[in-house]
Design a protein around this nucleic acid. Structure first.
Length: 495
RNA sequence: GCUCCCAUAGUGUAGACCGGUCAAUCAUUCCGGCCUUUCGAGCCGGUGACACGGGUUCGAAUCCCGUUGGGAGCACCA
């Protein structure tokens, strides 16, 4: 007979898997957003994963603004994005802006032409595309470099106007994947660029500028979403045309983020319309909104690190993020009473009631908040949540937390009867324990991510120990970030 | 339509490369219970998965083929 079944503890992988071909100290990675607005949850995955790997291998992390489409630039984004990254705890070593680099792109474009790897196309786009899909070359494709160079110069000097010519990077017209056949590398655009104004009119397109920059900046690993799978195939052609070493490409699965408003163009419009208070409106999925709700950025980092880089498409779980955040903040968040839909509760009492309520149930060293409740004409008037009063019902006993018990005599009139201060009673009758405030407490509004505005009263004295913007917990309500500068308000993070 | 990527509980994730120790890990959700002067935190327990069909093999979550299902791209956007 054998002994008890031996349970073999398998090594549980923690953290991110190793990066293929990564050498300690020599990894170079980048985060390359388009400056069309501030960062949102989706961006945070790319930023954090790249950052984690750079930290893991003591590598270099590059921030690159991809602003080669003058139509989709929000000048504020050049400032907002670094701020978002700072909040996330993502440190970048170098910053580049693509609109500073036209000369580089033009130079490489010329190299591509000379290598016979690019041609200037003046054919109508529709025709070019359908020929491509049929695997056929437009006539200009086979012209020699000298002719192409002449046309290229005409693109630069303004002979061709917008839409009349573009520089196409050759791939393989017979490629099995129609999405990979010849792609446009440079186009003419007359719209002024927010940074370079009208100094340049020939703009590189995504696949060309990315390949050029990733190579020149020495990126060893390109970690990005699966939606770039076909772009990778296109970009690899640029590398091969110019005989550059290929970096390692890694594609993680797509994330679908439920119940989230992420689209910058839509958000901007609704901010302009006054439907959102700004980029940090708590209903949004921007990082600014998460910050405004009091999230610890570590929660996002933990979340994405655990999610990893598998190429499966996944669903983002707010519940899981909330759980991660809760474990980070619970220990620090002071407790306070906030009564939503405050409803009066009156009961007769001869003396003065005193409450000493801990700021944190597990951290007595944080001290207590004291409240003294004196009766008027023998009657004490407090407010409790309407919902609790209604649901408790006549004849039941409720515990006013850290104060006393009250037997409800007439719920509709809010009349009760003092029922002692002994806590144990409430356990015996399984009554509910509710938060309460004095009737003349300060009004406060809680803004929830669902778009609700919960009006209620908050216990006085909260500003004595809490600073503007602190994260607290309203007992039985949820974790909130509170603000005192423009009236009393709070942003709900989660329950 | 063509091409590419993918498939472990409700949601994520480990295991897969190198088949056996998998009676399948962990987290979260959900459901119980304990504890607690919050519906928070903490503690204990439970439900719950290898998409399907073949093949290889003594043995398949793991290797191969097919099917089904999901996703992406086929832009003068990034």
């Amino acid at each position: 007979m054998g002994g008890p079944r031996e349970t073999i503890k398998r090594d549980r992988k923690t953290g991110l898997p190793d990066l293929e071909g990564a050498v300690m100290g020599e990894v170079v990675m980048r985060f390359a957003p388009g400056p069309s607005g501030p960062l949102h949850i989706g961006h945070s995955r790319a930023a954090i994963l790249n950052d984690e790997y750079c930290k893991k291998y003591k590598g270099k992390f590059i921030l690159r603004f991809e602003d080669t489409n003058p139509d989709r630039i929000d000048p504020d984004a050049y400032d907002m994005i670094p701020q978002d990254l700072e909040w996330l705890g993502v440190n970048t070593d170098e910053t580049f802006v693509q609109s500073d680099r036209f000369d580089t792109y033009y130079h490489v474009a010329k190299d591509l032409i000379l290598a016979g790897a690019a041609y200037v196309c003046t054919i109508d786009t529709e025709v070019w595309r359908s020929m491509k899909l049929a695997g056929k070359a437009v006539e200009e494709r086979d012209d020699g470099p000298e002719v192409q160079l002449e046309r290229w110069d005409r693109m630069l000097d303004g002979t061709y106007s917008e839409g009349e010519a573009s520089l196409v990077v050759k791939t393989d017209l017979d490629h099995r994947n129609p999405a990979v056949r010849d792609f446009i590398g440079m186009r003419i655009k007359d719209d002024p660029h927010p940074r370079t104004k009208d100094r340049f009119r020939v703009y590189p397109l995504y696949n060309l500028s990315v390949a050029i920059d990733d190579h020149i900046m020495g990126c060893t690993h390109i970690l990005r979403g699966k939606d770039h799978l076909n772009n990778t195939l296109r970009q690899e052609y640029v590398y091969r045309h110019l005989d550059w070493d290929l970096p390692k490409f890694i594609h993680y699965g797509l994330v679908s983020i439920p119940e989230s408003i992420l689209k910058t163009s839509l958000i901007r419009q609704e901010i302009t319309n006054g439907n959102y208070s700004g980029w940090s409106d708590v209903r949004l999925g921007t990082l600014q909104a998460l910050a405004a709700r009091g999230f610890d950025p570590k929660a996002l980092r933990d979340y994405w690190t655990e999610t990893g880089i598998k190429s499966v498409d996944i669903n983002f779980s707010w519940d899981t993020l909330y759980a991660k955040n809760r474990t980070l903040i619970d220990n620090k968040a002071r407790r306070f009473f906030f009564v939503p839909s405050p409803t009066p509760l009156i009961f007769e009492y001869g003396g003065v009631l005193e409450a000493n309520i801990p700021y944190h149930p597990e951290r007595p060293e944080m001290g207590v908040r004291k409240h003294r409740i004196a009766p008027h004409n023998g009657t004490i008037r407090l407010c409790i949540p309407e919902k609790d009063l209604r649901e408790a019902g006549n004849g039941s006993v409720v515990r006013l937390k850290d104060l006393c018990n009250v037997k409800l005599m007439d719920v509709s009139k809010g009349i009760g009867e003092f029922a002692g201060t002994d806590v144990s009673i409430i356990r015996e009758v399984k009554g509910r324990i509710v938060q309460w405030v004095l009737e003349d407490s300060e009004p406060l509004e809680i803004y929830t991510p669902e778009g609700e505005v919960v009006k209620g009263l908050v216990e006085p004295g909260i500003t004595n120990t809490v600073s503007n913007g602190d994260m607290i917990q309203f007992e039985r309500v949820g974790y909130c970030r509170v603000f005192f500068d423009h009236g009393m308000k709070a942003n709900m993070a989660h329950e």
